[in-house]
Each structure stands twice: as C-alpha cells, then as structure tokens.
Design a protein around this nucleic acid. Structure first.
Lengths: 204, 204
DNA sequence: TATTACCTACCTGTATGTAGGTAGGTTGTT
DNA sequence: AACAACCTACCTACATACAGGTAGGTAATA
C-alpha cells in the first residue's frame, strides 16, 4: 500500500497496520516527518520510537541520513510515476484535480510540504547527489504537467492564452507556494491559491 | 544602511564596511544565513567566525536563538515598513516592480528565500511567539499588496478580472514559490515565474 | 564607578554514527 | 538427518561532534 504524496492514503495508522516491512516503514515515516519539519530537523529518534526499535537499527537499513534522504526522494518519485500510470486514461482536468487533491492531503496531514519543496527548502545544505535527485524529480513533474496541459489545450478541455511552458511554471511555483502560505496564513488562503490555479486553466 | 530584503543593498561585504554595530551585524548576518540554509540549520558559529568574536558573545546580545530569530523577523518587518514608506509616492506598477526586484536580489544573493517563507518552511518547529510574529508580518505584506493592487485597478494602471483578494493571494503564494522552484530548476524558471506575475496584472 | 563588550572555560543535551554481539532463521554439505 | 556457515534483524554500549547556553572574569569606556 502506498501512503505518500501521490498514494492512496496519507493516514499513518494505516501504514502501521499493513504488511509493510521495517525498511519500508522507515522511509514512509521519515518522509512524513521531513515534510512536516524539514530534512535537517528530522531525526532518527522519532522514527525509532514509533517503530519501537533502537536508533542504531535504522542504520542497519540506511547507513547514513543521506541514504535515508535519498530513499525518500526515490520513493516519492516512484509514487509519482505510479500516479502518472494510474491517471493515464483520465481527462486532463481530472489529472490536475488529482494533483491538487494530493496537495490538499498534504496540508490536511500536518501542513506537510511536498517532497520536492521540502528538499528545495534545504537545498543549499544538501549533497550534490541529493540536489541532483531533486532536480531530476522536479523535471519529471514539470514534464508531466506540461504534457497534461498540452493535452487539455489541444482537446479543448482547458483554456488559457499564455504558453504551456509559462502555465507549467506557474503551477510548479504556486503549488509549493500555496503550502508555504497555508502554514502562516491558514487553510483558507491555501485553498484560495489552489482555486486560482484551476481558474487559470478554465478561462482567459 | 539597510541590507536585507527591502533594503538598499544585499551585499554582505557592504554590511561589514559600514558603521553597523555588532548587534546589528549579528541580525544582518543571521538573517542572510537563515534565508540561505533555514532557521534550524543556521548556527552561531558561522556568525562568530565572520564577526571575529566568540560564540558566547552572541548570547550577550541575543540570549537565546529564539531571541535572534525574533529579531530577524522584527528587523525584516521593519525594513518592509520602510520600503512601504520609500515607495509611497510611486506608481502601483513601480511598487510591484520594486517588490519583484527585491526577490530577484534574494535569488542572486545565494538563492535566499524571503524571511516569511524561511520561517514558514520551519513553521511547525517554531515557538508560538515566533509563529505569531510570522503571521502578523505576513498580514502586513498581504494588506499592502492588496492596497497596491486596488490602487492600480482603480487608477487604470493595472488590469485583471479576478478579485483583488485572489490576485493578492496569487502573488503571496507565487513569490515564495518562485524562490523555491528557482533553487531546484534554476534562475531561468525563477525569472519566468516572476514574469508571469507581472503579466497577470497587465492583461485579461 | 557602572556599564558595555567582549573573553575563557565549561556544562548539558542531543544527533549521527560505529563496534561488536546475539537470537533465530536459511542454506549448503556430507 | 546433522551440522557448519552464513544471513537477517535487531540489540547494548560507546565514540564523536557540535549545538545552545551559562558562569564568571577582564579591559576599556562613559
């Protein structure tokens, strides 16, 4: 069962009751914590307590924090690729709705940031290897977004006058921006930012 | 001389050569570091080295890290209020240009985030006192933005069809979002996001 | 003389990470 | 079937480092 960004459920209690093994649980819990408090602030102790194992045991699965960070990025990228597959046959608008829905789940589940913006927030402190992984994951998301926008524009499902590249970039900036704003200004403003994204592809 | 977000210069070498006293320098340097690497990752040692004083001496001015964090928020808010005063008589579009210019300086000066998003990124780890300060500062910025947008709409300098509140929120989310995206995707995409903000108030 | 602006030296907590061990299961060999 | 060799999934205990913070002192200045 998937539990992260583009997965079927975000509830931690569901994670714990399924057949996930320890290694998988560590990534899942780690991802959640990182999204809530940031990569740097996150620490092994929290996970160790939740899984009822010792701090050192986490090193058995992920020798260094960087390894765990990389695993989180890879897992999330993998989940996103799954998301692409699952929504393959949906209409463009439904795909974008599903994306927005994922972001709403983040906010509900403890004012999380998405994984990309979580690591972007700590970008200047990441190793080159991690920065590269974030960059590559970022490109996957934007490529998909651009393709969906083009599909919708061509089919007449979506309407906007600026270029596809510009609209892609607009979404790429506003989605994480909305999560950030939601933290300080509240859900109301988070929702409004997402609504304006939908409006931008339905008129003008 | 002001050196932060809405100040006249962002260059650290200028900070050091002016008549700023140690206490002021600590906030300035602290703000820069926090914007580059985040509040939690930031530490006293970096500043102590740069100012050629000992770690403990920083506690003389700011007894706790929270005090320094608060001072950074207050300083930035103060600089923003100054910015409002300085641009009071400018045309709406020029005010917004000046705001965008400030964000471009952030990006140039080490891929900084703005202070509000810096602390929003660590929001769930801040004390209530700090969260409140961020929230209040955030409201000042959005109120100003809304007023400028209204002014421009009424005078005919700006053109957009969505509500002022929506446009304000759009800017509030996209400005920090652009900085975040710029880190992983590069300056090109950062600039594009800012350009699209300007387009949004000139047409439609 | 009081205050400011530092300093040295140290304490405490905590985070990542390592060394080495063990219980129990699996696999391969005779 | 018996046994050796090895693996998995943890454990205890410790090493290291570095962070924030404190106590108490000193030298210069107002």
């Amino acid at each position: 069962m998937q539990v992260g960004m583009f997965a079927l459920s975000n509830r931690d209690d569901i994670i714990m009751s399924t057949a996930l093994n320890t290694k998988e649980r560590i990534v899942e819990l780690g991802r959640g914590h990182m999204q809530r408090i940031g990569y740097h602030s996150f620490n092994y102790k929290q996970i160790a307590l939740e899984l009822n194992i010792k701090n050192a045991s986490i090193h058995h699965y992920y020798p260094s924090k960087e390894d765990l960070g990389m695993a989180v990025i890879e897992k999330d990228r993998h989940d996103f690729l799954d998301f692409i597959q699952r929504t393959k046959k949906a209409a463009p608008m439904d795909k974008l709705d599903a994306l927005i829905c994922a972001y709403q789940e983040y906010f509900k589940g403890g004012q999380k940031l998405c994984v990309i913006s979580t690591f972007s927030a700590s970008f200047n402190e990441l190793t080159e290897r991690m920065q590269l992984a974030v960059r590559q994951y970022s490109e996957i998301v934007s490529s998909w977004l651009a393709a969906v926008l083009k599909e919708g524009l061509d089919s007449g499902d979506l309407h906007f006058s600026i270029s596809i590249e510009e609209m892609t970039n607009h979404w790429m900036a506003t989605l994480p921006g909305a999560l950030l704003v939601g933290r300080s200004r509240g859900k109301e403003y988070f929702d409004m930012a997402l609504q304006s994204l939908k409006k931008a592809i339905q008129s003008s």
